[in-house]
Design a protein around this nucleic acid. Sequence first.
DNA 1: CTTTTTGCAAATCGTTTGCATGGAC
DNA 2: GTCCATGCAAACGATTTGCAAAAAG
Lengths: 129, 129
Amino acid sequence: MSTLKYSRQRESIKEYLNSSCEHPTADMVYMSVRQEFPNISLGTVYRNLNLLADLGEAIKITTPNGGDRFDGRTAPHYHFCCTKCGNVIDLDLKELTHVNEAANEHFDGIIESHSMMFYGTCSDCINNQ
Amino acid sequence: MSTLKYSRQRESIKEYLNSSCEHPTADMVYMSVRQEFPNISLGTVYRNLNLLADLGEAIKITTPNGGDRFDGRTAPHYHFCCTKCGNVIDLDLKELTHVNEAANEHFDGIIESHSMMFYGTCSDCINNQ
DNA sequence: CTTTTTGCAAATCGTTTGCATGGAC
DNA sequence: GTCCATGCAAACGATTTGCAAAAAG
């Protein structure tokens, strides 16, 4: 195991992630952080996003289209993913403990709390035709 | 719009999908169907899997690691994905209508029925250390 | 001075696509 | 004969990796 060293790039990535509500892709993070560090590479962005996710300082969200999304909000909450536009939206529900209980009656694995992902159509995609 | 024509390859893919309970990846379908059609190409497998999904005769399941999974069982049911081994398992819960109702109180998109995905650790990965 | 992190480019993985040929109708 | 489906190989997009140079400690 290696000791973590400070890096200004990682700090900038973390800061952007915490200030953004849009669950950015790695490329969106790259575009934004490049304003402060014009020479930063996409590889460095990926390395740091994965590192932050491993450290529990960010959440990596798998989506069906257009790449994974990242979330700097680590307090437990649910996510919804629009299958039309691909956007990810926070769902501020109370914890769905009864769902896990119901699942465990029929299933002997362990369901991770707040892990479940909802899919459907977001309000923007409903309105814009 | 084009008219669908019969193909023995597509029929074989559909048959394998219906007989399998393991939510195979495109590559697993390829390996299996190749026993009957040694010259079938991976591109054809992908084209047919996507076609079947579009026709509603199969379900395409996005997973965090190792590629998408496909399911020939089209009757509504939930899925669990093990974040350790990547396997997808059917969850035979009653429909979680109260979850959708709870979500709709805080959210004005449309959550697709039976769309949600649960994540965690499957029993195999718990037992095998 | 040692170890971690970076930038860069090449590699990898899953998936899609263009095109000429073969099969369905 | 007309389209649709196939096999093949090349292209693609997202992500990871190897490596020498730069930064942190």
